[in-house]
Nucleic acid binder design. Structure first.
Length: 448
DNA sequence: AGCACA
């Protein structure tokens, strides 16, 4: 065949082709603009934009060679150059005879994202952290994780491509916020493309895969597993039944740890619904109830082993409780139900007690002001203040607005409520209520 | 302003 590459590419005449090569296009010129440009001369059957290192070149393919010739001829003798958005574009016959659109699956928007977690400790990122990160953009249906040559990867399934796209746009190239990971874990960068999958197959709830649409899916049989899967998580931690209620025991309690202190500490991760403190084995323990398991998981991971006060005082040990809904009989200095708007109201309506954990929707999302505590997590030591200082800083009535008392359908996956908005990801150390998703600018990479 | 990319 005729060797094209042996010729200088910008010789004055190009052999005609129904494909035209365009240069000097404005930034991010669209396919529509290319079609507009070519339409007067014939039928544009294909285009390719954002070509070249500067992404300012493009190709237009006409149905017929004569149409391409017409366009080239017109602008060759026209006093007005071809323009897109007022910018002169230069046209010539392409040295190819057709446009090949190599759209990979990674470019075709879909509802499932392929996430590669990069970093020394990528493997230590739990599926729960991934769930939390991606839940900021919408309900996450399923997640599977696996090891490939590319490293530690996950498939994250949303309901639709739009939601997936917003997550991809916001998170691709970003790091997982440090406060979601143990402090000794190296930064983990997310690389995100679309997957060709539309519906992941999740057989069991496990450390490797979750189906959040089906709470009754059996937990992976940890002992018996024919497929060689681990009964331990990738991080080597034991598989422990998660719960929305945490059991915290306080070690080395040099200072009094009050209900208010616990409320403040645990509110950093989401709305605390109830707290009950009690003495056990000569120490103090507390049960802390969140509306959902995810919040409890994050709180546990963030707080486990940390001290409330500097100097190793009041070290927290946290496990999951078997409780799902605490029965608070009386609001006093050892137990409180924060879902009761009026703290003076001691014993709520009997119908309120013993219900399903309340599935708060919007209210909980706005109430969530966990970021205020986050800086303390990056530097785990708390100010060496006695608890009195904390108590006075905490209003007797918590800052939470009255939680919606409506009992929602119990099978609504808790993740339908936004656990975290992109704005919170952006500035984990700042206080304040996050702006609604969509109004926040993409957060800065590689900070936090 | 000068020919894509799996």
């Amino acid at each position: 065949m005729a060797s094209v590459s042996s010729q200088p590419q910008f010789r004055y005449t190009q052999p005609p082709s129904k494909v035209l090569h365009l240069r000097n296009l404005p930034w991010e010129c669209t396919e529509e603009e290319l079609i507009e440009l070519g339409k007067p001369f014939g039928k544009v059957v294909n285009t390719k934009c954002n070509v070249g290192a500067n992404r300012n070149q493009a190709f237009i393919e006409f149905a017929d060679l004569n149409q391409a010739i017409a366009m080239i001829s017109y602008y060759a003798s026209s006093s007005e150059p071809a323009q897109v958005r007022g910018k002169t574009v230069y046209l010539q016959y392409s040295n190819r005879q057709e446009i090949v659109n190599n759209k990979t699956t990674a470019d075709v928007a879909g509802n499932v994202l392929l996430v590669t977690i990069e970093g020394q400790d990528a493997r230590l990122v739990s599926i729960d952290v991934l769930h939390l990160v991606f839940s900021a953009f919408g309900f996450v249906h399923k997640i599977t994780t696996f090891e490939k040559t590319a490293g530690f990867q996950a498939l994250v399934q949303f309901s639709d491509a739009e939601t997936a796209t917003s997550a991809k746009n916001a998170l691709d190239g970003r790091i997982i916020p440090r406060y979601l990971l143990s402090e000794n874990i190296a930064p983990c960068t997310l690389r995100i493309t679309y997957s060709a999958h539309t519906d992941l197959s999740v057989k069991f709830q496990s450390h490797r895969s979750r189906d959040y649409t089906n709470p009754y899916l059996p937990v992976a049989p940890s002992a018996i597993d024919g497929s060689g899967q681990f009964s331990l998580g990738l991080d080597g931690k034991k598989l422990e039944p998660e719960s929305n209620v945490l059991l915290a025991s306080i070690e080395n309690m040099q200072y009094a740890v009050t209900l208010d202190v616990l409320h403040m500490v645990f509110s950093a991760f989401g709305p605390v619904q109830k707290i009950a403190m009690f003495d056990k084995n000569g120490g103090v323990q507390a049960l802390i109830q969140y509306p959902d398991v995810q919040t409890a998981v994050v709180a546990k991971e963030a707080l486990e082993g940390h001290c409330i006060y500097d100097g190793g005082f009041c070290k927290l040990h946290i496990s999951y409780s078997r409780h799902t809904d605490l029965s608070i009989k009386v609001n006093n200095d050892r137990s409180r139900d924060y879902t009761i708007p009026n703290p003076a109201m001691v014993n709520p309506q009997p119908s309120m007690v013993g219900q399903q954990p309340i599935q708060t929707l919007g209210a909980a999302a706005h109430q969530y002001n966990g970021t205020q505590y986050a800086p303390g997590l990056e530097q785990p030591m708390m100010p060496p203040q006695p608890s009195a200082g904390w108590v006075s800083a905490v209003p007797a009535v918590p800052q939470s607005m009255p939680v919606q008392m409506t009992s929602h359908h119990p099978f609504v996956p808790p993740a339908t409520m936004p656990q975290m908005t992109p704005g919170m990801m952006q500035m984990p150390g700042r206080s304040g209520v996050p702006p609604p998703a969509g109004t926040v600018p993409p957060y800065r990479p590689n900070q936090m």
